[in-house]
Design a protein around this nucleic acid. Structure first.
Lengths: 182, 182
DNA sequence: GACGATACGGAGCGTGCGTTCCGGTTGTCA
DNA sequence: TGACAACCGGAACGCACGCTCCGTATCGTC
């Protein structure tokens, strides 16, 4: 991984960049040949660097998910936990809706992808944000971190079905406030 | 359609029944050969009765959608428009979440399916329910019928990601109440 | 019962995609 | 600079699926 030949390292980077772009545009559905062509590389070269299309997808996506986790951790000490949480919730949805790779990754149910602890940092981070907002009395208490992820997936589906309708996310946000149900 | 041979009519019914079951279980993704086998019929026979897999899917799904529309029309004169609307909203989601064919049909974006007026009865029916509930001051006024459909699609995504979590639908329901945002 | 029309079944075609294989090329190091 | 190992490209394989084709079986009718 470090003592790679120069061209190998170069090609690996090109593949990653191409995959990032292609997956962002069309999600996991993009054919691997398209990624290879976009990278200016043969399909075999992709497989020399990544054991499968799925692995390449995860390599691209995990980095981005980790960015989300980082953002969440930075907000963990915010003055207003309720605001911080809701802003974060909305921002994640807005960002993810611009990137089909992230959508597909978050919606991944079968678990064969991020089961092995990957993405857990993300979960822990927004879970903490949620807990603080609930403790501050800003967010209803009958939901947990997993529920939240499900809601994010749902909002992404809404955004995909009716692009650019942020007021629908606001419906969910209003439903999350403590004043609503619970 | 009427002067069909007896076996043809029989096989058509068998195909429809099999398709209903298979699509309900796995949505549009189910291979057509599976439907044929389940119906005890060759693939060619399916194509004699339906020009394409998509057409068969619509034949199965439209009937069901029309049931939803009927239900909505029956509720249009209910005493409490707010309650009637929300109950209907929840019931549609609950029913649809048990049937992947319906989920796929409702989430259909590309429009090549129900564009030609099909399913418009459904839209009109729940639109009317929504309008009455809004007029009664029970539901926020910044959403329309299309928004509602998007929310249904979102709730179905939630239900698919986290099966059996009805309290998440309640989050959306609470967000829809007039007391929430608007 | 026999004949024409109609319908049936399932093998086969075309396509798209993930993955593998291998002859040729290129980087690296002595 | 020569030689070996690492690497590359892209043709080819296997598989799945939508759809078609055609020899055969079945139905309706006289």
């Amino acid at each position: 991984m470090e003592k790679m030949r120069a061209d190998a390292r170069r090609n690996r980077a090109k593949v990653l960049a191409a995959a990032e772009e292609a997956f962002a545009a069309d999600g996991l559905a993009v054919p691997l040949d398209d990624i290879a062509r976009l990278a200016g590389v043969g399909a075999g070269t992709v497989y020399r660097h990544f054991p499968s299309k799925e692995a390449l997808f995860q390599a691209v996506v995990l980095e981005r998910i980790e960015q989300f986790a980082e953002e969440a951790r930075a907000l963990a000490t915010a003055d207003n936990p309720g605001e911080a949480f809701l802003d974060y919730f909305v921002r994640v949805i807005k960002q993810a809706s611009l990137n089909r790779a992230i959508c597909d990754a978050l919606a991944e149910t079968s678990g064969h992808a991020f089961k092995a602890g990957a993405g857990d940092g993300f979960r822990a981070a927004y879970g903490e944000l949620l807990r603080r907002a609930q403790a501050a009395g800003a967010i209803r208490k009958d939901i947990d971190a997993d529920d939240l992820r499900a809601l994010i997936v749902g909002c992404l589906a809404v955004e995909r079905y009716a692009p650019g309708s942020e007021h629908l996310v606001r419906v969910v946000v209003d439903g999350l406030r403590a004043s609503a149900g619970n």
